[in-house]
Amino acid sequence: MIRIFFITTAVAALLVSCQKPSSASNPNPDELLVENFGKIQDGRDAHLYTLTNANGMVARITDFGATLVSLTAPDKEGQLSDITLGYDSVTGYDSDENPYFGCSVGRYGNRIAHGKFSLDGKDYQLATNNDPGGIPCHLHGGDRGFGRRLWTLEEHTPSSLTLKYVSADGEEGYPGTLTAKVVYRLTDDNELIWEATATTDAPTIVNLVHHTYWNLSADPVTSINDHRLTLNADHYLPTNAGLIPTGERAPVAGTPMDFTEPTPIGQRVEADFEALKLGLGYDHCWVLNEAADGELGLAARLEDPKTGRVMELLTNQPAIQFYGGNFLDGTITGKNGTVYEHRAAVCLETESFPDAPNQEGFPSPVLRPGETYRHVMVHRFSAKP
């Protein structure tokens, strides 16, 4: 039986900061390392769990928002460094300024037009907590979505853990009691696997999304514009001024939206192209060429040419939202007092289509009793000389 091993915050921080693979990153390899991560606004304690693999990689996850707080990955010299943005304690994550750093978003990730949808002949009104272009929409689950909820640790090993959250019928306006689980696994193949499942007692809509901000250089004061991105997608979803899909699936060929070959993110981000103007850069959904049948397919490949770090992303979902950190503006202070400037990170969020509840031509996001929703993301890390 695997036991939970509690350590102090100072010792945990020291262990996680180790830059070379070492079994000393976990003094008790058969136990899960846990530390207190501070109190959330209602006074309850949040916890930080540390996962390790045989190669010295370390992933830290908090039960607040089922959030990935940090992940170390090796560069071409074998140096391990944290490649995510975030905060030093739960206080930052439980604040209004938090732009969904690392969290598990739900009940419905991305946008729903005007916060409205109909299901089985009944109309529902959700919070309109976002208004790009002056057009209100429901974003990432509402005023206090799954990324701002305290989850329960259900199962664990030194390299994996399962977190559970039960969303009551009517929470944030959604119908049905939804039982969601998120599993994090850190494998010896240098893969971080995020897997979300959900069941419901009444028809509802579901789109659980993982929202980590990546900077493979491990230097978050630098832009990700020089990162080379490949998206396995021949089409994207054009949007209106409110960043809601119009229903069209447009070809990427001959446009700045074409990442079918490795391309620096910043190469065309300022191009005179309507989609980029509406999103103030890249903040759009691409339709994946693979994974539409529910099996794992390659979605994206991200590479930092300086450090050699590579992240490949596989998923069973039909789409991926590529967000280039356009709204990071130097007003957020994150880990170790770092100020996160414009385009300091990139988000690659596999998902169902935005506004799918209102678009007949999109894959259905409806989950009914007796069915199980399942979303898998495999983040595969390597380094090239």
Rank of each mutant, 00 (worst) to 15 (best):
H227R: 08
V378T: 00
K384G: 04
F101P: 02
Q41I: 09
F6R: 13
T152A: 11
I61K: 03
D226P: 09
P262S: 05
V287W: 15
L153H: 14
P318Y: 03
M377D: 13
T50S: 10
A168M: 08
L150P: 12
D169Y: 02
L186G: 02
D123F: 01
V252P: 00
T197K: 05
H138L: 13
D169A: 01
D226H: 14
C347G: 08
F362W: 02
V183M: 05
A12I: 00
G109N: 11
E290Q: 15
V166K: 07
T199Q: 14
T162N: 02
I244N: 11
A66Q: 03
G38T: 03
P27M: 04
D355A: 02
V11F: 11
G121K: 14
E270Y: 00
T128V: 15
T260C: 13
M311T: 04
N358A: 08
I332T: 10
L80E: 14
A241C: 09
Y100I: 10
D258W: 07
T197Q: 07
G141T: 01
G134S: 00
V346M: 00
Q125P: 04
A24L: 09
A12N: 04
R149A: 06
L231R: 13
V269M: 15
D45E: 15
I320N: 04
A12R: 05
E312A: 06
H342P: 06
L192T: 06
L68S: 07
K116M: 12
F146P: 00
E303P: 06
P245M: 11
N26S: 03
H284S: 14
T52S: 00
R301V: 15
V310S: 07
F101G: 03
A250F: 12
Y165L: 13
F5G: 12
L161Q: 11
D189W: 10
N36M: 02
T230E: 09
T204M: 14
L80F: 12
A299T: 08
Q41W: 06
G294D: 08
D329F: 07
V287K: 08
V346W: 00
L68C: 05
H375G: 04
N326K: 09
V310P: 05
L51G: 01
D329H: 09
F381V: 01
T372K: 14
I7T: 03
K116R: 14
T52Y: 00
H235S: 12
Y323F: 15
N36I: 03
A299M: 05
T177Q: 15
L280G: 15
A66C: 14
T157L: 13
A345N: 12
R268Y: 15
A113M: 06
A10E: 15
P256L: 08
D94F: 06
